[in-house]
């Protein structure tokens, strides 16, 4: 463990908590893409299949458990409890166009052709594009509540910090995982224009308005 990965994991945890609190407190999931939340639930489910079979550390097990429970709780809140506030008119991204290519790619490019490893690889590829429906929704509505932009900033920062973690691990431990690194770069690049808007607008107290 290193500071980059620890802060990255905490930023990830913060993002998930911000989202759950936003939906629970405002009793609304307006401006949030349910499709992205479904993809995240799939990401954690397929990545943490070894939750009960492989023990890395108490921290690792607890965090995996929290991510899985929180992602399913968010999907439940959006599609069941606060279903009436779900913006299905704008949340129209076809997630099958993400699921199928990621699955095929995970069968072609992986470290080891076993169920666990292919599922882990699939989750890595899927996570890199899982935010697309959310970014698509924000671009369609042209704006985002500030709490939603804080959620996106924390979520985007987590993988950006993981990039630093991988640089550190390569230098300090001669350890690198090319599949995770390439996907992590793609994932972080997808946030770039959002990061720009967040830093130039939201941090100045303005609303996140996308140029029409």
């Amino acid at each position: 463990m290193n500071i980059f990965r620890l802060v990255g994991d905490l930023s990830h945890l913060l993002a998930i908590i911000i989202l759950l609190l936003k939906i629970w407190k405002t009793r609304s999931c307006a401006g949030i893409s349910g499709k992205s939340q479904i993809l995240f639930a799939v990401v954690y489910t397929t990545r943490y299949l070894d939750l009960l079979t492989t023990y890395v550390s108490a921290y690792n097990t607890v965090m995996k458990f929290v991510f899985i429970v929180a992602s399913y709780a968010t999907v439940y809140l959006m599609y069941v409890k606060f279903r009436a506030t779900y913006d299905h008119n704008h949340d129209t991204f076809r997630i099958e166009f993400l699921l199928v290519p990621c699955f095929i790619l995970s069968l072609l490019i992986n470290h080891e052709f076993t169920v666990l490893e292919v599922m882990w690889t699939f989750s890595i590829y899927l996570e890199s594009v899982a935010i697309l429906p959310q970014l698509f929704l924000v671009s369609k509505t042209g704006e985002a509540e500030s709490i939603t932009s804080h959620y996106l900033f924390a979520l985007g920062s987590y993988r950006a910090l993981y990039l630093l973690n991988w640089v550190y691990r390569y230098m300090a431990e001669d350890h690198y995982e090319l599949i995770a690194i390439v996907s992590g770069v793609v994932q972080t690049v997808l946030y770039c224009d959002f990061f720009y808007l967040y830093i130039t607008k939201v941090l100045k107290g303005k609303k996140l308005q996308l140029p029409a």
């Binding site: 070894d50 492989t54 890395v56 965090m63 001669d174 350890h175 995982e177």
Partner: peptide
């Protein structure tokens, strides 16, 4: 370098 057999990252 050896491929990590278990993924120790979240």
């Amino acid at each position: 370098h050896p491929e990590p057999d278990t993924h120790d990252e979240l």
